[in-house]
Amino acid sequence: MAGPVPPGELRFAFDAGSGTVLWGPADLAALPLSDGLRAELASLAAQYDESLNWDYPPDPGPWREARCARFNADARDALERVRAELGQEVEDGFVELHEDPDLGRYLADPKGFER
């Protein structure tokens, strides 16, 4: 596929371990996106994975609120760049990240932490 996907069929969202942020019915590798934006999207997917606690996912992830805010802003900027480069609407399925309110307790005693 050389052009954009049909309207309403492309979604921007994060899914842990997927390595992608764009979801749709077409060959997403063929989307007409710049190499720089492709690299940024891959970086955001990898960063999202770093926000999780892979040892035990229900426990708090490692990011403080400032890091979450920086990621959220970068993700929103990337979505706007995707829309601009494709020249079409892309569904916004992004859920902003925020510091887990129990992160301090978790970091103080990870082995003894309970919600």
Rank of each mutant, 00 (worst) to 15 (best):
Met1Phe: 12
Ala2Arg: 10
Ala2Asn: 14
Pro4His: 11
Pro4Met: 11
Val5Pro: 08
Val5Lys: 05
Pro7Met: 11
Gly8Cys: 08
Glu9Gly: 07
Arg11Cys: 14
Phe12Leu: 06
Ala13Val: 00
Phe14Trp: 09
Gly17Ser: 14
Gly17Arg: 15
Ser18Thr: 12
Leu22Lys: 03
Leu22Ser: 04
Leu22Gly: 03
Trp23Thr: 00
Pro25Leu: 13
Pro25Gln: 14
Pro25Cys: 10
Ala26Trp: 13
Asp27Gln: 12
Leu28Glu: 10
Leu28His: 09
Ala29Gln: 12
Ala30Trp: 01
Leu31Glu: 02
Leu31Gly: 05
Pro32Glu: 00
Ser34Cys: 04
Ser34Lys: 02
Ala42Thr: 10
Ala42Arg: 15
Ser43Gln: 11
Leu44Val: 03
Leu44Ile: 00
Ala46Cys: 02
Ala46Leu: 06
Gln47Val: 00
Gln47Ala: 13
Tyr48Ala: 13
Glu50Phe: 00
Asn53Lys: 11
Asn53Cys: 12
Asn53Tyr: 03
Asn53Asp: 08
Trp54Arg: 05
Asp55Gln: 11
Asp55His: 04
Tyr56Pro: 00
Tyr56Phe: 15
Tyr56Gln: 12
Asp59Gly: 03
Pro60Ala: 09
Gly61Gln: 07
Pro62Lys: 05
Trp63Tyr: 05
Arg64Thr: 01
Arg64Gly: 00
Ala66Tyr: 06
Ala66Met: 05
Arg67Gly: 05
Arg67His: 13
Ala69Lys: 14
Ala69Arg: 15
Ala69Cys: 06
Arg70Ile: 10
Arg70Pro: 00
Phe71Ala: 09
Asn72Met: 04
Asn72Gln: 01
Ala73Ile: 00
Ala75Thr: 04
Asp77Ile: 06
Glu80His: 14
Arg81Val: 05
Val82Trp: 10
Val82Thr: 02
Arg83Ile: 01
Arg83Gln: 04
Glu89Ile: 02
Val90Thr: 04
Asp92Pro: 04
Glu96Ile: 02
Leu97Ile: 10
Glu99Asn: 13
Pro101Cys: 11
Pro101Asp: 14
Pro101Lys: 05
Asp102Val: 09
Asp102Ser: 12
Leu103Ile: 10
Gly104Leu: 12
Gly104Lys: 14
Gly104Pro: 04
Tyr106Ala: 00
Tyr106Leu: 05
Tyr106His: 09
Leu107Gly: 04
Asp109Leu: 01
Pro110Ile: 09
Pro110Met: 07
Pro110Phe: 06
Pro110Asp: 09
Lys111Phe: 10
Gly112Leu: 08
Gly112Arg: 15
Phe113Ser: 03
Phe113Cys: 02
Arg115Thr: 07
